[in-house]
Nucleic acid binder design. Structure first.
Length: 275
DNA sequence: CGTTACCCCTGGAGGC
DNA sequence: TGCCTCCAGGGGTAAC
């Protein structure tokens, strides 16, 4: 589920309830997600106040009094992770790995596949953390425009689709939104990045931005339900034009949607609308 | 350096 | 029903 929009929707949903609240207690039930959970973190977190929640790519960043002797809690949802605000007596489900207990609510992190991770950065400057320092540009930032992406891809002969998913270049675009953005821009996922014109990059980048922003807006309308949910109601998701729609009619030309594998990931596209 | 294959892990879907 | 294979929204690493 989590690409940039889902992480951003989670952030916006958590913020009103957690900012200003102190962590009463942290509970780790699983010793290892993607990374080892340091046992000392349980005691380190107790008593710290959440001053802000920010996002870098698909990472959620909890500012735990970082400017006053605290640090940053870094959370990545991986492929199957989710966070919810629950009542403290909510029965545990399988793969509920972490609770952050606050006075009036509990943040519960669930991740069946355990590709997600929870890390701690002591003090300020969380951007210097090794996992964050290597990240590329934010796709919703003004600096991300067609000219920038054109310049970055002059020596890249790989197909554009896996490049859009490379977080060292641009963060937050996963398999769904890469496919949807390319459809919106009318660009084939197979086209070599250095064989796309500047003009077409000036179409592609706004297409990416629109795709992400529309998804955030759609999720944003049900944020409160999402973070308060007992697990039933998920985040409303915009219906896709091509992703996971093999053989179904293209919304533009009714030609059947095609599928293939690129760099180990399935890709969906309209062979008529995307060149 | 850029690109791709493989791996981490569980669970659901579909074939037999 | 069970067993098998394949697939899944991410990303780091190693090998070409």
């Amino acid at each position: 589920m989590p690409e940039l929009p889902e992480v951003e929707v989670s952030r916006q949903g958590l913020m009103p309830f957690l900012v200003g609240q102190r962590i009463v207690k942290a509970i780790f039930r699983t010793p290892k997600l993607r990374h080892e959970l340091p046992a000392s973190l349980v005691s380190r977190l107790a008593g710290l106040r959440i001053d802000a929640i920010s996002r870098r790519g698909k990472y959620l960043l909890f500012d735990c009094e970082s400017t006053q002797g605290g640090g940053w809690l870094i959370l990545h949802l991986g492929m199957s992770g989710s966070v919810r605000l629950v009542k403290p007596d909510m029965p545990l489900q399988k793969h509920d790995h972490v609770d952050l207990v606050f006075a009036h609510t509990t943040l519960r992190f669930r991740d069946p596949r355990r590709f997600g991770t929870l890390l701690w950065h002591e003090g300020e400057g969380v951007g210097q953390h090794p996992l964050l320092a290597v990240l590329g540009i934010e796709p919703l930032s003004p600096a991300f425009d067609g000219d920038w992406l054109f310049a970055q891809t002059r020596r890249r002969s790989a197909p554009i689709k896996p490049l859009l998913m490379d977080s060292h270049l641009v963060v937050g675009i996963g398999n769904i939104y890469a496919a949807e953005s390319l459809f919106r821009a009318g660009i084939s996922p197979l086209r070599a990045a250095n064989r796309i014109s500047r003009e077409r990059y000036r179409i592609l980048v706004p297409a990416i931005r629109t795709t992400l922003e529309n998804s955030i807006a759609a999720g944003g309308s049900s944020v409160r339900d999402y973070v308060h949910s007992d697990g039933g109601a998920g985040c409303f998701q915009l219906s896709c034009a091509v992703y996971d729609r093999l053989g179904q009619p293209c919304p533009t030309c009714a030609q059947p949607v095609c599928s293939l594998r690129q760099a180990g990931r399935s890709t969906f596209y309209c062979p008529r609308c995307q060149r």
